[in-house]
């Protein structure tokens, strides 16, 4: 009865299919090669409950050096990387409100950049819309989960001897995410601030307290937030922020 809507949802999700499968695989391979104890199951759990590329890639690095990350630092970093999600739900506030609770929470929990982009385009109404939104969210979710599990299983097969320098893949990944973010002009200044402040704090720490180099992320983070807040007026005035 709703076959047409389901098909429409599948077609809308097609562009996300390739993107999520490849990005998911990249995540899985990294996780399996970087974090010794991680496997397909770890990737499965992370992808089912988090569904955030930038968060999960950052998580690989954090899990690998887990002794450096207290749960508080983990939470603060997660908050900082994903704070954009705090405004994603806004266009859906009224649309989701009448939906039955499980559906509402599933749609909220699966609001990724790509799913958000598709769902905000939709002009349907009523039951039809509910089916469509659920299917788009579910298909995208499954592409991401499938990609990451496949990647993790593949990653476990790579012999360890080949992996000297492979940890650069993590840096490469963050660069890829950053390049994509910087296609938007509004992100240029924040990116420069984040990068230079971190480099500065690193160099200063190397001079005065080289033993604590692994703890610089937290102070650097606070410094970046303070600078960005101080620049709020300037950055907003430049109309780079719509």
């Amino acid at each position: 009865m709703y076959a047409k809507t389901i098909r429409a949802a599948f077609i809308s999700s097609m562009p996300v299919l390739m993107g999520y499968l490849t990005m998911g695989m990249a995540f899985g391979i990294l996780l399996a090669t970087q974090v010794r104890a991680a496997n397909g199951f770890t990737a499965l759990v992370m992808s089912i409950f988090t569904i955030s590329g930038s968060m999960q890639f950052a998580a690989v690095d954090m899990l690998r050096n887990s002794e450096n990350y207290s749960l508080l630092l983990t939470a603060l970093l997660a908050l900082m990387i994903n704070i954009r999600y705090a405004v994603y739900g806004l266009p859906f506030l009224r649309i989701f409100r009448p939906y039955v609770r499980p559906l509402r929470w599933y749609l909220i929990g699966t609001l990724t950049d790509e799913t958000y982009a598709i769902e905000t385009q939709d002009k349907r109404h009523g039951k039809d819309k509910q089916i469509y939104l659920f299917c788009v969210a579910f298909f995208d979710h499954m592409y991401w989960v499938a990609g990451s599990v496949i990647g993790a299983v593949l990653g476990k097969m790579i012999p360890l001897a080949w992996t000297k320098g492979i940890d650069f893949a993590m840096v490469a990944l963050f660069i890829v995410v950053l390049v994509d973010l910087c296609r938007e002009k509004a992100n240029h200044i924040p990116a420069v601030i984040g990068g230079t402040v971190t480099a500065g704090v690193l160099l200063i720490c190397l001079q005065i307290c080289p033993g604590h180099i692994n703890k610089i992320l937290l102070p650097a983070m606070f410094l970046v937030i303070v600078i960005l807040l101080a620049l709020k007026k300037k950055l907003s005035d430049r109309e780079v922020l719509q």
């Binding site: 900082m80 420069v192 937030i225």
Partner: peptide, 18 residues
């Protein structure tokens, strides 16, 4: 404002740090 600017800043931090 924070939602807009913090993502890029955080990822740039991770590039340098990692």
């Amino acid at each position: 404002y924070l939602g807009k600017v913090l993502t890029a800043a955080a990822i740039a931090m991770l590039v340098v740090y990692s």
